[in-house]
Design a protein around this nucleic acid. Structure first.
Lengths: 110, 110
DNA sequence: AATCTATATCGTAATATTGCAATATAATAA
DNA sequence: TTATTATATTGCAATATTACGATATAGATT
């Protein structure tokens, strides 16, 4: 055991969970915030900005990219990264919708 | 190595990351969605609803509770769980804000 | 071609997560 | 008091994540 039972959940649940998981590490939140502040940058800029080694940053970038949170385009011998607004909107709206619904329905709760 | 460098990040980054991490598993997303649909329930209801053993569900509930995503109040010998709308609003608004900001700023990006 | 720059990948150690059987705890019911 | 019911905790195996040194890859520069 130890492996997630992926076949027990809906595609939507798996998608939201994988996005949340990608955002579930402080280094990756820091990367997203940095990307937001500079709009676009290359991996090396992030390495200079965070106290993490280059392979570690590269690994975090790959996870964010796999979850569709960021986009990367080749620019010469570097790669230009930026936030994917659609992904952030999808997950943000999902959680806000749950907040609004539960606020309306939770009157008789704990 | 292998341990997250928590001292390298801000409190806000750690908070958002820990909430996202808690929501970063399909079973926990399924639990939140179930809680939303029934407003409030006890652990046993979730065990009946998901193909997971009781200790596994209990563990997922604890992680959601540690991240402040759900609340639990003792009700006799059972525990009544429900969503914490404030937490869902906090993380939803955070991601939506990033989506909106990056949409405005990302014109010259990839 | 040789070198530099930027990033990815490999390999690996340390650590964390997932899932469950067995068991413990605690309130309720008989 | 002795079940019964509802959860939590313990212990453990399987798996996944995190971090980084070493190395590979690929485009740019000299």
């Amino acid at each position: 055991m130890g492996a997630t039972k992926t076949d027990a959940f809906t595609t939507d649940q798996l998608t939201i969970a994988s996005m949340a998981k990608a955002l579930g590490h402080p280094a990756r939140i820091a990367i997203v915030e940095y990307l937001l502040s500079v709009q676009t940058c290359i991996c090396g800029d992030i390495v200079n900005h965070l106290p993490l080694a280059q392979p570690t940053v590269s690994q975090h970038l790959r996870e964010l990219k796999n979850a569709d949170i960021i986009k990367g385009t080749i620019e010469g011998n570097a790669i230009c990264y930026c936030i994917n607004p659609k992904a952030m909107e999808l997950i943000g709206a999902y959680f806000l919708k749950i907040a609004a619904s539960s606020l309306l329905l939770n009157q008789k709760c704990c």
